[in-house]
Write a protein that binds this DNA or RNA. Structure first.
Lengths: 231, 231
DNA sequence: TGATTTACTACACGCCGTTCAAAGTCAGCA
DNA sequence: TGCTGACTTTGAACGGCGTGTAGTAAATCA
């Protein structure tokens, strides 16, 4: 790596770091190229040497932030012994909520409109982190599948063709024998973990109940029970 | 109502109508005072006679849009006979999802950051619609409470003090005898209905599964079953 | 050394929300 | 009828935004 490349990587990292700091201070809207440049003693135009457009910077940030969130969830899960699947699910869920509460701007960046009009790209580090999160959840559901399968609706039969081809290939490689219905169940689990947190982060619970965490805890315990586990 | 007041109300309504149209065309970010004024053949400054700031206009819009969504859910629910509580819950859930898919910008306006930095006020028509939605859901949970209560976690005891005073008073008047735990359960139901729809609207499911509706349907059937009902 | 690639500045463009003085409009009263 | 006072609208301005483009200086390479 030449001196040039090193400097370039360093500046690029500094841009992202400052963007995250600005986001932490003043929300996702505070991420303006001009503000970043101001903080770095540069001009706004200079950033275009590193990120062709503002959305590309956002995309890079989403990747970093999402990766951090997934790593928090993974390490919380791994702190619970393999035998306690219910505890691992709960740890994942609680870690996700706590991360969201600690980084509400990050949550908005990933799960909301970071900037109105911004559309996440179909690939890149953000997509990778999303697949990693999905994979982590599928792993948990796979652990629970033997007990959970009796709860599946019998009428519907899922088919691998109904899923994204890349995801399907991934799952079939990592979890051989796991049926597509388990992936569908994973999405439901994801939705269930996501719903209350999204409502809370966007302020829809604060005016109704004083301790949303208790409700979330109950919901997660019910989820775990519905998977045939106990926490 | 004097001629002046009539004109004023008319112009105010036109501003909101155009804002909704712009939102439908180009997302929430397309709601700019200048664009609205342009469309109306006015100047941007003139709008300040009607809405003191852009956020106040947004707040008014949120109220309108939220009310429309709630009315859609209510009428879907009321199209199912009282005796079929499970069907009423399902109708509400499906109506909410379908409304969100038909009005993604509206969904973002209510449940996301319409504009980065915008914070919904503690009262006003938006809050009213939110309470109305909450009330509708509480009604459904109240219908299901006799069968659902066995599913409540026994360790935790909710207290009216844990809830917003206004909400608590409202519930105790409309649903006498309903315990606070039922309200907590309602929030969980809300979160469960919200989660998958939020993920879908913000594009997190489209890259994973082709028919998110099927997953949502399964999830709602499971929710209804967990309430001790059948759909 | 000279040629080329790269990083950056400076400036321009058109968008935005917001403010404000001045001009226009109109109901109600003398 | 004419006048007054309240309301509405204009038009210009301010500062901020993302985005391009032209030019400059430095680092790199042959």
């Amino acid at each position: 790596m030449s001196r040039r490349e090193r400097l370039r990587a360093q500046t690029s990292a500094e841009i992202k770091a400052i963007a995250l700091k600005l986001m932490g201070d003043g929300g996702p809207d505070a991420i303006s190229l001009r503000a970043i440049a101001r903080e770095m003693g540069m001009t706004a135009g200079a950033i275009y040497s590193y990120f062709p457009t503002r959305d590309d910077l956002i995309t890079a940030l989403v990747g970093d932030v999402y990766t951090a969130a997934v790593e928090a969830a993974e390490s919380a899960r791994d702190a619970v012994p393999d035998s306690d699947t219910g505890g691992r699910v709960l740890a994942w869920a609680q870690a996700m909520r706590e991360w969201a509460l600690a980084n509400p701007e990050g949550f908005r960046l990933i799960y909301g409109d970071p900037v109105p009009g911004y559309r996440p790209p179909g690939d890149g580090p953000g997509r990778e982190a999303e697949l990693r999160a999905c994979s982590g959840l599928i792993g948990l559901v796979a652990e629970a599948w033997p007990t959970a399968r009796t709860l599946q609706p019998e009428g519907r039969d899922y088919d691998w063709a109904g899923f994204d081809a890349g995801l399907a290939a991934h799952v079939r490689e990592d979890f051989p024998g796991l049926p597509p219905a388990a992936v569908a169940l994973t999405l439901r689990v994801w939705g269930r973990m996501h719903g209350l947190v999204a409502l809370e982060i966007y302020g829809h619970l604060s005016g109704l109940i004083h301790d949303p965490g208790a409700v979330y805890r109950d919901e997660m315990h019910d989820l775990i029970a519905s998977l045939g586990l106990n926490a």
